[in-house]
Amino acid sequence: MDPLGENGAMDAADLDDIAAELYALPPAEFTAARNARAMGPLAAQVKALRKPVVSAWAVDLLVRAGGLTDALELAAALREAQDDLDAPELARLGRQRRSLVAALAAQAVAAAGEHDVTVSAAAREDIEKTLNAAMMDASAAAAVMTGRLVRPLVASGLDAVDLEGAVAGSTPDGRATAAPSRDDLAERRARKAAEKAAREADRAANEATRELARVEAKRDKAQERVDHLAERLDDLERELARVRADAATARSDLERWDRERENAASLARSAEKKATAARDAID
């Protein structure tokens, strides 16, 4: 018995390995390398491997460099948002997808240039179309991630991406992704609702914290003013007590000098009378 279960499975794996090696080469070197590998029981299948177009080969470069991880994570989130009919999330992820696709296409063009392969404007557009297809369709993503893409992919509306003849070697399993069940959708929506509620609660908590900080700052400022005015009031009360004491002393002095003046006036009147009497006696 075949240890792998089927000779066909082993042959397909071997063919995929050979194809992966060949598609790692620049397109100009592909044909000669392919013909050199066309030996043994897989000679016919190897010989039948098609030379990749530049745009597909550049995407294969990205896959081998591990540059599509973020894109496929975003793709999964985008498909989930589509399942949940989450319009705001769809809009946000759509903008993020376009930005990421443009950046990845530029990265693919630069990587091709490092292999002395020029990517035309049309080929770059095909790269972007392929990346978009991979992000919008799980089957296309699986095909792209083989690193054995032969031609570019195109996503057209809601139809499945055409993968016929797009991948060299075996086609990845699970070309069509099953639609989520009602229970799955309900669970996703519940999770989305819980996540939204958590975000809103966090936002409310942050706003409350900011408001508390604002109120505390105002309160601290008011406390400073109260303390300042209390100090001033204490100073004024001490000054008032001093002034009152000075006023009492001044009144006491005034009363004493009033008495002194009355006595002096009485003495002056008595002395004037005596002087008048003395002048009259002389006359």
Score class of each variant (00 low, 15 high):
His115Thr: 14
Leu163Arg: 10
Ala168Leu: 03
Arg210Trp: 06
Ala71Ile: 12
Arg124Pro: 05
Ala134Lys: 01
Arg199Trp: 05
Arg37Trp: 02
Ala230Gln: 13
Lys51Trp: 04
Arg189Thr: 06
His115Tyr: 13
Pro88Cys: 06
Asp183Tyr: 07
Val46Ala: 04
Val161His: 09
Arg79Ser: 06
Glu216Arg: 15
Ala87Asp: 02
Ser252Gln: 14
Ala193Val: 06
Ala168Pro: 03
Ala179Cys: 04
Glu187Cys: 13
Glu211Asp: 12
Glu187Val: 04
Asp183His: 08
Leu149Glu: 00
Val119Tyr: 03
Ala102Tyr: 05
Leu163Val: 08
Ala121Phe: 14
Ala250Arg: 15
Ala275Lys: 11
Ser55Leu: 02
Arg261His: 00
His228Asn: 03
Thr31Arg: 13
Arg251Met: 05
Thr146Ile: 05
Ala32Met: 13
Leu90Met: 11
Ala81Pro: 00
Pro3Glu: 15
Asp235Phe: 08
Ala77Ile: 00
Glu272Met: 15
Ala13Asp: 13
Arg188Gly: 01
Ala166Arg: 11
Lys192Met: 14
Asn263Trp: 08
Ala81Val: 01
Ser55Glu: 07
Asp283Tyr: 14
Val117Leu: 05
Asp183Leu: 11
Leu42Asp: 00
Ala112Gly: 08
Ala247Cys: 01
Leu149Cys: 10
Val154Phe: 09
Glu128Lys: 12
Gln45Gly: 04
Asn263Asp: 10
Arg79Pro: 00
Leu229Gln: 09
Ala179His: 10
Ala123Val: 02
Ala108Val: 08
Asp184Ala: 11
Trp257Ser: 05
Pro3Met: 14
Glu89Leu: 07
Arg191His: 13
Asp14Asn: 04
Asp84Trp: 00
Ala123Ile: 04
Ala176Thr: 09
Thr118Arg: 14
Val53Asp: 13
Ala277Trp: 02
Ala186Glu: 12
Lys192Phe: 10
Arg244Gly: 05
Asp14Thr: 05
Leu15Met: 02
Gln45Ile: 06
Ala176Ile: 15
Ser170Trp: 03
Arg279Cys: 07
Lys47Glu: 12
Ala160Cys: 12
Ala247Ser: 11
Ala241Gly: 00
Val167Asn: 02
Ala75Asn: 02
Ala141Leu: 08
Val154Gly: 03
Glu114Pro: 01
Arg203Leu: 15
Thr171Pro: 00
